[in-house]
Computed example of a mutant assay.
Amino acid sequence: MRGAIVTGAGSGIGAAIASRLAREGYAVGVNDLTIDAAHATVDRIEADGGKALALVADVSDEAAVARMAQEMRDGLGSPELVVNNAGFGHQARFADISTEAFDKIFAVHVRGTFLVTRAFLPAMIEAGRGCVVNIASQLGQVGGVELAHYAAAKGAVIAMTKSLAREVSAQGVRVNAVAPGPIETPLVAALSEDWRRAKAAELPLRRFGQPYEVAGAVVFLASDDGALFVGQTLGPNSGDVML
Protein backbone atom coordinates (compact mmCIF):
# COMPACT_ATOMS: atom_id res chain seq x y z
CA MET A 1 0.00 0.00 0.00
CA ARG A 2 1.30 3.45 -0.90
CA GLY A 3 1.99 5.78 1.99
CA ALA A 4 1.26 9.48 2.36
CA ILE A 5 1.56 12.04 5.11
CA VAL A 6 -0.62 15.14 5.35
CA THR A 7 0.23 17.86 7.85
CA GLY A 8 -2.45 19.95 9.50
CA ALA A 9 -4.96 17.24 8.65
CA GLY A 10 -7.18 17.45 11.71
CA SER A 11 -9.72 19.68 9.98
CA GLY A 12 -10.47 21.73 6.90
CA ILE A 13 -8.44 21.23 3.74
CA GLY A 14 -5.98 18.85 5.37
CA ALA A 15 -8.74 16.54 6.59
CA ALA A 16 -10.33 16.51 3.15
CA ILE A 17 -6.99 15.69 1.50
CA ALA A 18 -6.24 12.88 3.96
CA SER A 19 -9.69 11.36 3.52
CA ARG A 20 -9.52 11.54 -0.27
CA LEU A 21 -6.04 9.98 -0.34
CA ALA A 22 -7.27 7.13 1.85
CA ARG A 23 -10.09 6.51 -0.62
CA GLU A 24 -7.48 6.45 -3.38
CA GLY A 25 -5.69 3.61 -1.60
CA TYR A 26 -3.04 5.42 0.43
CA ALA A 27 -2.16 4.58 4.02
CA VAL A 28 -2.22 8.09 5.47
CA GLY A 29 -0.23 9.64 8.26
CA VAL A 30 -2.52 12.30 9.71
CA ASN A 31 -0.60 15.07 11.43
CA ASP A 32 -1.99 17.79 13.64
CA LEU A 33 -1.04 19.76 16.73
CA THR A 34 -3.28 17.72 19.02
CA ILE A 35 -4.00 14.02 19.24
CA ASP A 36 -7.76 14.64 19.36
CA ALA A 37 -7.72 16.54 16.07
CA ALA A 38 -5.57 13.92 14.37
CA HIS A 39 -7.72 11.09 15.68
CA ALA A 40 -10.91 12.77 14.46
CA THR A 41 -9.68 12.43 10.88
CA VAL A 42 -8.18 8.98 11.46
CA ASP A 43 -11.51 7.75 12.85
CA ARG A 44 -13.38 8.98 9.76
CA ILE A 45 -10.87 7.30 7.46
CA GLU A 46 -11.02 4.01 9.33
CA ALA A 47 -14.82 4.13 9.42
CA ASP A 48 -14.70 4.23 5.62
CA GLY A 49 -12.37 1.22 5.51
CA GLY A 50 -9.13 3.12 5.05
CA LYS A 51 -5.84 2.93 6.90
CA ALA A 52 -4.45 5.90 8.83
CA LEU A 53 -2.14 6.82 11.69
CA ALA A 54 -2.44 9.81 14.02
CA LEU A 55 0.78 11.83 14.25
CA VAL A 56 1.15 14.74 16.65
CA ALA A 57 3.78 17.42 15.99
CA ASP A 58 4.27 21.15 15.65
CA VAL A 59 5.78 21.25 12.17
CA SER A 60 7.89 24.28 13.07
CA ASP A 61 9.69 22.27 15.78
CA GLU A 62 12.65 20.37 14.30
CA ALA A 63 12.83 17.75 17.05
CA ALA A 64 9.07 17.16 16.93
CA VAL A 65 9.20 16.69 13.16
CA ALA A 66 12.04 14.18 13.52
CA ARG A 67 9.99 12.17 16.04
CA MET A 68 6.92 12.31 13.82
CA ALA A 69 8.92 11.15 10.80
CA GLN A 70 10.17 8.14 12.73
CA GLU A 71 6.65 7.31 13.94
CA MET A 72 5.44 7.49 10.34
CA ARG A 73 8.17 5.18 9.12
CA ASP A 74 7.60 2.74 11.97
CA GLY A 75 3.82 2.71 11.56
CA LEU A 76 3.18 2.99 7.84
CA GLY A 77 6.58 2.98 6.18
CA SER A 78 8.31 5.82 4.38
CA PRO A 79 5.73 7.84 2.43
CA GLU A 80 5.94 8.36 -1.29
CA LEU A 81 3.68 11.42 -1.00
CA VAL A 82 4.18 14.37 1.34
CA VAL A 83 1.47 17.03 1.54
CA ASN A 84 2.53 20.14 3.45
CA ASN A 85 -0.75 21.68 4.50
CA ALA A 86 -0.24 22.79 8.12
CA GLY A 87 -0.92 26.46 8.61
CA PHE A 88 -3.03 29.12 10.24
CA GLY A 89 -4.32 32.58 9.45
CA HIS A 90 -3.85 35.92 11.15
CA GLN A 91 -5.43 39.17 10.04
CA ALA A 92 -3.96 42.60 10.82
CA ARG A 93 -3.02 45.85 9.17
CA PHE A 94 0.64 45.87 8.19
CA ALA A 95 1.65 48.40 10.85
CA ASP A 96 -0.12 46.34 13.52
CA ILE A 97 1.56 42.99 12.74
CA SER A 98 3.77 42.12 15.68
CA THR A 99 7.20 40.62 15.16
CA GLU A 100 5.97 37.57 17.06
CA ALA A 101 2.99 37.12 14.73
CA PHE A 102 5.18 37.58 11.65
CA ASP A 103 7.73 35.04 12.87
CA LYS A 104 5.07 32.50 13.82
CA ILE A 105 3.45 32.66 10.38
CA PHE A 106 6.79 31.99 8.71
CA ALA A 107 7.73 29.32 11.25
CA VAL A 108 4.68 27.20 10.53
CA HIS A 109 4.17 27.81 6.81
CA VAL A 110 7.73 28.09 5.54
CA ARG A 111 9.98 26.44 8.14
CA GLY A 112 7.38 23.71 8.62
CA THR A 113 7.24 22.94 4.90
CA PHE A 114 11.04 22.83 4.83
CA LEU A 115 11.41 20.58 7.89
CA VAL A 116 8.74 18.06 6.93
CA THR A 117 9.92 17.79 3.33
CA ARG A 118 13.53 17.41 4.40
CA ALA A 119 12.60 14.61 6.80
CA PHE A 120 11.21 12.41 4.02
CA LEU A 121 13.04 13.56 0.89
CA PRO A 122 16.18 11.38 1.19
CA ALA A 123 14.13 8.17 1.15
CA MET A 124 12.22 9.37 -1.91
CA ILE A 125 15.45 10.15 -3.73
CA GLU A 126 16.88 6.77 -2.76
CA ALA A 127 13.75 5.04 -4.07
CA GLY A 128 13.84 7.11 -7.25
CA ARG A 129 10.19 8.12 -6.89
CA GLY A 130 8.05 10.38 -4.79
CA CYS A 131 5.85 13.42 -4.77
CA VAL A 132 5.64 16.56 -2.65
CA VAL A 133 2.61 18.83 -2.79
CA ASN A 134 2.77 22.10 -0.89
CA ILE A 135 -0.44 23.91 -0.03
CA ALA A 136 0.15 27.58 -0.72
CA SER A 137 -2.49 30.26 -1.35
CA GLN A 138 -3.54 32.58 -4.12
CA LEU A 139 -2.54 35.37 -1.73
CA GLY A 140 1.05 34.25 -2.28
CA GLN A 141 0.54 35.21 -5.93
CA VAL A 142 -1.40 38.47 -5.63
CA GLY A 143 -1.09 39.60 -1.99
CA GLY A 144 -3.89 40.44 0.39
CA VAL A 145 -5.01 43.44 2.42
CA GLU A 146 -4.44 42.87 6.15
CA LEU A 147 -2.70 39.60 5.28
CA ALA A 148 0.77 40.76 4.23
CA HIS A 149 2.64 38.31 6.48
CA TYR A 150 0.44 35.37 5.47
CA ALA A 151 0.76 36.25 1.77
CA ALA A 152 4.52 36.63 2.09
CA ALA A 153 4.84 33.21 3.72
CA LYS A 154 2.74 31.55 1.03
CA GLY A 155 4.78 33.30 -1.64
CA ALA A 156 7.87 31.79 -0.04
CA VAL A 157 6.25 28.34 -0.18
CA ILE A 158 5.66 28.77 -3.91
CA ALA A 159 9.29 29.84 -4.45
CA MET A 160 10.53 26.88 -2.40
CA THR A 161 8.35 24.57 -4.48
CA LYS A 162 9.89 25.77 -7.73
CA SER A 163 13.43 25.62 -6.40
CA LEU A 164 13.14 22.10 -5.01
CA ALA A 165 11.42 20.92 -8.18
CA ARG A 166 14.42 22.05 -10.20
CA GLU A 167 16.73 20.26 -7.78
CA VAL A 168 15.15 16.84 -7.45
CA SER A 169 12.91 16.16 -10.44
CA ALA A 170 15.66 14.36 -12.35
CA GLN A 171 15.96 12.03 -9.33
CA GLY A 172 12.35 10.95 -9.63
CA VAL A 173 10.72 13.28 -7.11
CA ARG A 174 8.10 15.68 -8.41
CA VAL A 175 7.34 18.82 -6.40
CA ASN A 176 4.29 21.01 -7.01
CA ALA A 177 2.00 23.38 -5.16
CA VAL A 178 -1.70 24.05 -4.87
CA ALA A 179 -2.74 27.64 -4.22
CA PRO A 180 -6.38 27.68 -3.16
CA GLY A 181 -8.53 30.74 -3.07
CA PRO A 182 -10.85 31.28 -0.11
CA ILE A 183 -12.12 27.90 1.06
CA GLU A 184 -14.85 27.27 3.62
CA THR A 185 -12.60 26.25 6.50
CA PRO A 186 -12.11 27.35 10.12
CA LEU A 187 -9.12 29.43 8.96
CA VAL A 188 -11.23 31.52 6.57
CA ALA A 189 -14.18 31.61 8.97
CA ALA A 190 -11.90 33.36 11.48
CA LEU A 191 -11.39 36.31 9.11
CA SER A 192 -13.63 39.35 9.47
CA GLU A 193 -17.12 39.28 8.01
CA ASP A 194 -16.31 42.44 6.03
CA TRP A 195 -13.32 40.71 4.44
CA ARG A 196 -15.32 37.60 3.61
CA ARG A 197 -18.18 39.57 2.08
CA ALA A 198 -15.90 41.75 -0.04
CA LYS A 199 -13.85 38.78 -1.20
CA ALA A 200 -16.86 36.72 -2.25
CA ALA A 201 -18.21 39.65 -4.25
CA GLU A 202 -15.03 39.97 -6.33
CA LEU A 203 -14.73 36.27 -7.21
CA PRO A 204 -15.94 35.35 -10.72
CA LEU A 205 -17.70 32.29 -9.25
CA ARG A 206 -19.14 34.44 -6.44
CA ARG A 207 -18.50 31.69 -3.93
CA PHE A 208 -15.75 30.26 -1.77
CA GLY A 209 -14.53 26.76 -2.46
CA GLN A 210 -15.04 23.60 -0.44
CA PRO A 211 -12.16 21.53 1.01
CA TYR A 212 -12.90 18.54 -1.22
CA GLU A 213 -12.32 20.71 -4.28
CA VAL A 214 -8.74 21.31 -3.16
CA ALA A 215 -8.24 17.62 -2.36
CA GLY A 216 -8.98 16.75 -5.97
CA ALA A 217 -6.11 18.94 -7.17
CA VAL A 218 -3.71 17.21 -4.79
CA VAL A 219 -4.78 13.76 -5.94
CA PHE A 220 -4.26 14.79 -9.57
CA LEU A 221 -0.75 16.10 -8.93
CA ALA A 222 0.18 12.89 -7.12
CA SER A 223 -1.24 10.65 -9.84
CA ASP A 224 0.26 9.34 -13.05
CA ASP A 225 -1.99 11.82 -14.88
CA GLY A 226 0.06 14.59 -13.29
CA ALA A 227 3.41 13.15 -14.37
CA LEU A 228 4.37 16.18 -16.47
CA PHE A 229 3.59 18.69 -13.73
CA VAL A 230 6.84 19.87 -12.17
CA GLY A 231 7.24 23.04 -10.11
CA GLN A 232 3.70 24.11 -10.98
CA THR A 233 1.11 25.87 -8.88
CA LEU A 234 -2.48 24.80 -9.49
CA GLY A 235 -5.14 27.32 -8.55
CA PRO A 236 -8.55 26.10 -7.34
CA ASN A 237 -9.44 29.68 -6.49
CA SER A 238 -12.94 30.50 -7.84
CA GLY A 239 -11.29 32.60 -10.56
CA ASP A 240 -9.52 34.94 -8.14
CA VAL A 241 -6.20 34.42 -9.96
CA MET A 242 -6.14 33.62 -13.67
CA LEU A 243 -2.80 32.54 -15.16
Rank of each mutant, 00 (worst) to 15 (best):
R2A: 13
I5D: 11
T7C: 11
G8H: 09
A9D: 10
G10N: 07
G14M: 08
G14V: 11
A18E: 10
L21T: 12
A22N: 11
R23N: 15
R23E: 15
V30W: 12
L33V: 08
T34E: 09
T34M: 07
A37Y: 01
A40G: 15
A40N: 11
D43V: 06
R44F: 11
E46T: 15
E46Y: 08
E46W: 09
G50Y: 15
L53F: 06
V56W: 00
V59N: 06
E62N: 06
A63P: 04
V65E: 06
R67K: 13
R67T: 13
M68S: 10
A69P: 03
E71T: 09
R73F: 00
R73L: 00
D74F: 02
G77C: 12
G77Q: 13
P79D: 12
E80Q: 14
L81R: 12
V83N: 11
N84P: 03
F88Y: 14
F88A: 04
H90N: 07
H90F: 14
Q91M: 12
A92E: 10
A92T: 04
I97D: 08
A101P: 00
F102R: 07
F102G: 00
F102E: 00
D103G: 00
A107H: 05
V108N: 08
V110D: 01
G112T: 09
G112V: 05
T113D: 00
F114R: 10
F114T: 04
V116F: 11
V116G: 09
P122H: 09
A123M: 05
I125W: 02
C131F: 02
V133K: 07
V133Y: 05
N134A: 08
N134S: 14
N134K: 12
A136M: 07
S137N: 06
Q138A: 10
Q141G: 03
Q141M: 15
V142I: 15
V145Q: 02
A148T: 14
H149W: 04
A151W: 01
K154N: 05
G155Q: 09
A159D: 09
T161Q: 02
A165L: 04
R166N: 09
V168D: 02
V168T: 07
S169Y: 03
S169L: 03
A170S: 14
V173Q: 05
R174C: 01
V175D: 03
A177I: 04
A177M: 03
V178Q: 04
A179I: 08
P180N: 08
P180F: 10
I183Q: 05
E184Y: 02
T185R: 12
P186D: 14
V188L: 15
V188E: 11
A189C: 05
L191T: 09
S192W: 02
R196H: 04
R197K: 14
A198R: 13
A200L: 11
A201T: 01
A201D: 11
R206A: 06
R207K: 12
F208I: 11
P211L: 07
G216T: 10
G216K: 10
F220T: 01
S223E: 08
D225V: 00
A227W: 00
V230F: 03
G231A: 05
Q232M: 01
T233S: 05
L234S: 00
G235W: 02
G235Y: 03
M242F: 05
M242Q: 09
L243R: 06
